Structure formats: structure tokens, C-alpha cells
Computed example of a mutant assay.
Amino acid sequence: MGKLRITNNIRRLRFDADEMTQKELAEKVGVTRQTIVAIENAKYSPTLELAILISRVFGEPLEKVFDIQDAS
């Protein structure tokens, strides 16, 4: 199995949630805005705990917020 890459739909979900800012999302899940930026840009993979918290903010299943793809 090759290297895996986690992608996400956070930017779209934020827009659909009354254009929630990165800062607002960060405050809701207890991280910095920079962490949300890094996750959105696929520069950082969140912990399972953080991924679940983010999905709960949007009221969506984990699979609708995050996806895993083969990067090779």
C-alpha cells in the first residue's frame, strides 16, 4: 500500500454554515486558526479526536468531512 493522503471538505462546509470563519471553527473545537488552515490545506492530518469534533460542529458524519486517498 502506498502513502495515504487525508483530504477534507472543511472550506465548503464552513461556507455552507453561514460562512463560518476559520477562527470561529477553531474556537469551537479548541485549536488555533493556524491549525484549521493547515488541515484545510492538507498540510496537517488531524487526530481522530479533532476530526470527530470538527464533524460534530457541522453535524455531518466523519466520512462527509474527511476522505483518505492513495497519494501514489
Score class of each variant (00 low, 15 high):
E60G: 10
T7L: 01
A17F: 08
R5V: 03
T21P: 03
N9M: 06
D70M: 09
E60K: 13
T47S: 14
L25C: 12
P61K: 09
Y44R: 13
V65G: 11
R14M: 07
P61R: 01
K23E: 10
K28G: 03
V37M: 02
D16H: 09
K23T: 10
T7G: 05
P61H: 12
A51M: 14
F15Y: 12
V65I: 13
I54D: 09
K64R: 10
T32A: 01
V65H: 13
L53M: 15
V31W: 15
I39G: 10
G30K: 06
T21E: 02
I52E: 13
I10T: 03
M20E: 05
P61N: 12
K28F: 07
I68F: 09
L4M: 12
F58I: 08
N41E: 11
M1R: 12
T21Y: 08
L25P: 12
D67P: 04
V57K: 01
I68K: 10
N9W: 00
L62Q: 05
Q22F: 00
I52A: 13
T35W: 13
N8I: 11
G59V: 08
A38W: 10
N9V: 08
M20H: 05
N8T: 03
L50P: 01
Q34T: 10
F66R: 01
Q69P: 05
E63H: 12
Q34A: 13
I6G: 07
R5N: 03
I52T: 02
L13V: 05
L62K: 02
V57M: 14
I68Y: 02
Q69H: 09
R33A: 12
E49F: 01
L13P: 03
F58K: 15
A42L: 06
K23G: 09
F15N: 00
V29N: 15
L53C: 15
M20Y: 12
Q22R: 12
K3W: 08
F15W: 08
P61G: 09
L4T: 14
L13E: 04
E40G: 07
I10W: 06
D16T: 05
G30D: 06
Y44H: 01
I6K: 14
Q34F: 03
L13D: 04
I36E: 14
I68Q: 07
R12M: 06
T47L: 06
D18Y: 08
L50V: 00
I68T: 09
R14A: 04
M1D: 09
S72A: 13
L25Q: 15
E19C: 13
E27W: 01
I54H: 03
L50Y: 00
Q22T: 11
R11S: 06
E24G: 11
K23V: 06
R12H: 04
P46S: 06
A71K: 02
S45L: 04
E24H: 13
R5G: 03
A51Y: 14
D67T: 11
P46F: 08
G59N: 14
